[in-house]
Amino acid sequence: MDIFFEQYFDFDVMRENFSDVLDAFWTTIQLALISGVLALLLGLILALLRAAPGRRMLPVRGLAIAYIDLFRGVPLLLVVLLISGSFPFLDFLPEWLRAPDMLGKPDIFWYGVLSIALTYGAYYAEVYRAGLEAVPLGQSEAAHSLGMSHTVALRHVIVPQAIRKVIPPMLNDFIALMKDTSLVQVIGVVEVVKAGREVQAETFNSSALTLAAVLFVLVTIPLARIVDRQISRQQMLTQRGVL
């Protein structure tokens, strides 16, 4: 049992490496925020494409469904490895896209962002879909009977209501996304888990990993509480017939 405490709760190791681990945690946060926003946008676009009405739009719907199935079905780690491994060889992509170097962040950071956004975009698309389907049919009937086009009805009536419904599952998925950022370490990005492992490799002590866990929990627990509150607020509003 002593070994356990020595290995995981060595406060000296934690103290000495605190700033390195913290810097890496900042990378984790940046990864999560940037990918998260992109995934939210991509998810909405996918969900709307998937729901495009009319026979002419059948190929569009098909493509959207194929994309969603693909990225929900392949592990994020694989996506990370495939993208970072293949991009340098995709000649048809312009240089700035093949090996991006923006905002002072190296290409591997952006490969990570892309992988996470593409994958979580698919998850978010399904969440949006559930939200869109949960909006009562009467809403779109009323909108259409007033002469609103599909797009106008979506924009002003359906999507605003759908978004309100999906906030809890969205937040939940965001917490998952934030944890999944740790996967990009395999292509060399030093996010917080990798930083912990590097300290571990150099000091033969695992306490930096504990530190990483603590930092995560400091962010994810409040987020989880917010989700819980949103859920109960939603339930209350649904019961009152608002949502």
Partner: peptide, 30 residues
Amino acid sequence: RRGIGMVFQQFNLFPHKSVIENVSLAQRTV
């Protein structure tokens, strides 16, 4: 449909908009 008005059994008012917004929305967008 601009020339045909419809009123539903379940009202189908837009819950996220105020009364006056409900009545104005289609006028403005359509």
